Computed example of a mutant assay.
Amino acid sequence: MTAVSAAPAARATLPAPPAPAPAGSTPSAPLLNGQVIGIAYHAIAAVRDRLLAGSGLTFHQSVALKAVADGLDRDGAVGHLTAKLKIGESAGLVLLDELADAGLVEGARPSLTDRGESAERAFADAVAETAERLYGDLPEADREIAARALAHVTTRANAELDGL
């Protein structure tokens, strides 16, 4: 399986916290912007890549494996990959072929092999455990607000891509 090697990731840091608010006032949080999103993305991606390192899978291959695990047929999986990863159809087909060559998926309507199921389950479990450590103690209302804001940003970014 072809995996993209990456240089060791530098530890991402968040912008400096705001100065303490005067007594009796409400402290302000940093505004959501591209830099805050980018820094969070790179920190999370570095964690994700370390979780994947032992599997031999790239992130894109893990997304393709999950698409097959979710029961998508070849066309559905390729459509999912092009939409979510912003890659071309041919690149999506290559990802599925790489998984087949590695013995992780099989068949014209791809399904996971035992090895593929094991790899997908191990990564999904590791992601769930990590997500709990990263997000688990955040108030649910904050998580909902962040999810809505990021969904809006994603929608707008997709519209920008469609216009380019």
Rank of each mutant, 00 (worst) to 15 (best):
residue 80 H to Q: 11
residue 12 A to P: 00
residue 69 A to V: 09
residue 66 K to A: 14
residue 42 H to I: 05
residue 55 S to W: 00
residue 56 G to E: 02
residue 26 T to K: 10
residue 98 E to R: 07
residue 152 H to E: 15
residue 136 G to V: 07
residue 129 E to R: 09
residue 132 E to L: 10
residue 45 A to F: 02
residue 11 R to Y: 00
residue 60 H to E: 14
residue 36 V to K: 04
residue 42 H to V: 08
residue 5 S to H: 06
residue 93 L to S: 02
residue 44 I to C: 01
residue 153 V to R: 13
residue 111 S to Q: 15
residue 128 A to F: 01
residue 125 D to L: 11
residue 130 T to S: 12
residue 60 H to R: 15
residue 72 L to N: 12
residue 152 H to K: 15
residue 114 D to M: 09
residue 163 G to Q: 07
residue 24 G to Q: 07
residue 30 P to V: 12
residue 76 G to D: 00
residue 125 D to H: 08
residue 3 A to S: 09
residue 156 R to Y: 12
residue 50 R to N: 04
residue 70 D to A: 12
residue 55 S to G: 01
residue 31 L to T: 13
residue 137 D to F: 08
residue 5 S to T: 13
residue 124 A to H: 09
residue 159 A to H: 06
residue 119 A to W: 08
residue 93 L to I: 04
residue 147 A to S: 14
residue 143 R to A: 13
residue 2 T to N: 11
residue 158 N to G: 05
residue 21 A to P: 12
residue 19 A to C: 10
residue 85 L to T: 12
residue 17 P to R: 12
residue 56 G to Q: 03
residue 94 V to I: 14
residue 52 L to Q: 03
residue 101 D to I: 06
residue 77 A to L: 02
residue 117 E to R: 15
residue 30 P to N: 11
residue 104 L to C: 01
residue 63 V to T: 09
residue 84 K to D: 14
residue 162 D to R: 14
residue 133 R to H: 09
residue 85 L to P: 04
residue 154 T to I: 08
residue 140 E to I: 10
residue 118 S to V: 15
residue 131 A to L: 07
residue 66 K to L: 11
residue 78 V to L: 00
residue 7 A to L: 07
residue 89 E to D: 13
residue 102 A to L: 03
residue 48 R to Q: 03
residue 32 L to M: 11
residue 133 R to V: 11
residue 123 F to C: 09
residue 28 S to C: 11
residue 120 E to A: 15
residue 28 S to I: 15
residue 113 T to Q: 12
residue 148 R to Q: 15
residue 111 S to N: 08
residue 82 T to V: 09
residue 82 T to N: 04
residue 132 E to W: 05
residue 34 G to L: 06
residue 17 P to N: 05
residue 89 E to N: 12
residue 82 T to L: 02
residue 97 D to K: 08
residue 106 E to Y: 06
residue 138 L to K: 14
residue 158 N to V: 07
residue 157 A to D: 13
residue 128 A to E: 10
residue 68 V to C: 00
residue 16 A to Q: 14
residue 109 R to T: 07
residue 25 S to T: 15
residue 124 A to Y: 04
residue 36 V to P: 00
residue 89 E to W: 11
residue 144 E to Y: 08
residue 29 A to C: 06
residue 104 L to H: 04
residue 22 P to H: 08
residue 154 T to P: 01
residue 95 L to K: 02
residue 121 R to V: 15
residue 5 S to P: 04
residue 98 E to V: 00
residue 38 G to C: 05
residue 137 D to N: 10
residue 83 A to S: 15
residue 17 P to L: 03
residue 95 L to F: 07
residue 23 A to W: 09
residue 35 Q to E: 14
residue 5 S to G: 05
residue 116 G to Y: 10
residue 146 A to T: 12
residue 66 K to I: 05
residue 149 A to L: 15
residue 10 A to Q: 08
residue 83 A to F: 10
residue 120 E to K: 15
residue 6 A to E: 05
residue 76 G to P: 01
residue 126 A to Q: 04
residue 10 A to L: 07
residue 127 V to D: 01
residue 68 V to H: 01
residue 94 V to G: 04
residue 92 G to V: 11
residue 130 T to H: 07
residue 82 T to Y: 02
residue 144 E to W: 06
residue 109 R to I: 02
residue 141 A to I: 11
residue 163 G to L: 07
